[in-house]
Amino acid sequence: MTTSLELPGYEHIYSGKVRDLYAPVGADGAVVPDQLLLVASNRLSAYDWMMSPEIPDKGEVLTRLSLWWFDQLSDLVPNHVVSTDVPAAVAGRAVLVRKLDMLKVEAIARAYLTGGGLEEYHAKGSVSGVALPDGLVDGSRLPEPVFTPTTKAPVGEHDLPMTYAEVEAQLGADVAAEVSRLTRAILARGNEIAADRGILIADTKVEFGLAPDGSGGLVLADEVLTPDSSRFWPADLWEPGHPQPSYDKQFVRDWLTSPESGWSKSSGEAPPELPAHVVEQTRAKYVEAYERLTGQTF
């Protein structure tokens, strides 16, 4: 159960799995209509369950890394950031952003084959309807990034794969084409930059919105190329044919499905508490990813 903070000058409007949204309130007591305060919590979700306890500093790592990436991607796509001047209680893990009409599609691109994409490839030889070459294995690099969208399910429900035709039906042909192009371009740019820093970005999820007045094109929102929204692999340990070590929450997923946790995904029961060593190692992985990518000490 998430509890909202009391932030003077802001009104709590929504809490998702890992983020809380507040609306700025003007001096006249009216809500500012075109801006939101986006607060990244230290909560972590895996397999659509909220984990306990939280991961210390996670919200700040993701916020700072997203801000760094927004700068690296600014020539590709505009982003939603207005200001990092935020209340002291959420300093470092909150951003004032433009209020957008968010697209109801999870925009995902894959540069390497693993996870749910690998399962579909084994079954059909394709991912999201995109035919792939024969003979690929867990961790294979794809010939080029592939757009593999999913639905955006409510909290507690599973996102489901979408075909490109379904995305076109949801968004219209022009917006769907631009979402696909930008998602793949963001992952390609991310890998260009990360490769020099010893990290491979296997796949990523990004979110786009449109200005409510219909002006302008797509705006990149939420977070971008973080360990929560992407799979980060150490480049020097990359070896196709089995699951790769990672700098992201896959580490938590792997523990949950290990004999040590004693939990089964299919049980329908809530996962156990994360032991201290998993919490500490998860934090360390997030911080290491941030430091390796940005060159800055956290």
Rank of each mutant, 00 (worst) to 15 (best):
263 W>Y: 03
59 G>L: 04
188 A>R: 08
182 L>F: 02
208 F>N: 07
259 P>S: 10
238 W>H: 14
165 A>R: 14
298 F>G: 06
274 L>I: 09
225 L>M: 14
124 K>E: 13
204 T>F: 02
261 S>Y: 00
10 Y>P: 01
79 N>Y: 01
170 Q>S: 11
190 G>V: 04
92 G>N: 09
140 S>M: 10
207 E>F: 00
226 T>L: 03
74 S>L: 07
75 D>N: 06
230 S>E: 10
162 M>D: 08
123 A>S: 09
24 P>G: 12
288 E>T: 14
189 R>W: 06
79 N>W: 01
194 A>W: 01
121 Y>Q: 09
250 Q>V: 04
112 Y>M: 13
281 Q>V: 05
13 I>L: 07
54 E>Q: 09
281 Q>G: 09
35 Q>S: 12
238 W>Q: 13
37 L>I: 11
69 W>I: 12
114 T>H: 12
249 K>E: 02
112 Y>W: 10
9 G>M: 05
265 K>C: 14
126 S>G: 14
277 H>W: 15
139 G>K: 06
61 V>N: 05
150 T>S: 15
161 P>G: 10
285 K>H: 05
50 M>G: 08
27 A>R: 11
277 H>S: 10
214 G>Y: 04
109 A>K: 04
22 Y>F: 13
120 E>F: 04
107 A>G: 13
130 V>Q: 11
167 V>C: 06
179 V>F: 00
212 P>C: 15
24 P>L: 07
144 E>A: 15
4 S>H: 03
23 A>C: 12
114 T>Y: 05
208 F>R: 05
260 E>A: 13
5 L>Q: 12
58 K>P: 01
240 P>A: 05
213 D>L: 11
148 T>R: 09
34 D>Q: 09
237 L>Y: 14
242 H>V: 14
77 V>C: 11
42 N>E: 14
202 A>G: 13
66 S>I: 04
156 G>S: 08
165 A>G: 14
34 D>N: 15
149 P>A: 00
242 H>P: 15
104 K>E: 12
273 E>A: 14
197 R>S: 07
190 G>I: 04
54 E>Y: 01
137 V>P: 05
96 L>Q: 14
91 A>P: 05
160 L>G: 02
201 I>A: 03
166 E>P: 05
237 L>V: 07
80 H>I: 08
244 Q>P: 01
118 L>T: 07
2 T>W: 05
140 S>D: 11
45 S>H: 06
206 V>R: 01
147 F>M: 08
203 D>C: 09
234 P>N: 08
206 V>F: 02
232 F>E: 04
98 R>Y: 00
108 I>E: 13
153 A>M: 10
190 G>W: 02
23 A>P: 12
168 E>R: 10
249 K>A: 01
84 T>V: 07
281 Q>R: 15
175 V>S: 08
269 E>M: 15
219 V>H: 02
28 D>Y: 14
44 L>Q: 09
12 H>E: 11
128 S>E: 11
189 R>Y: 07
161 P>E: 13
167 V>F: 04
209 G>E: 10
214 G>S: 14
199 I>V: 15
246 S>Q: 04
91 A>E: 12
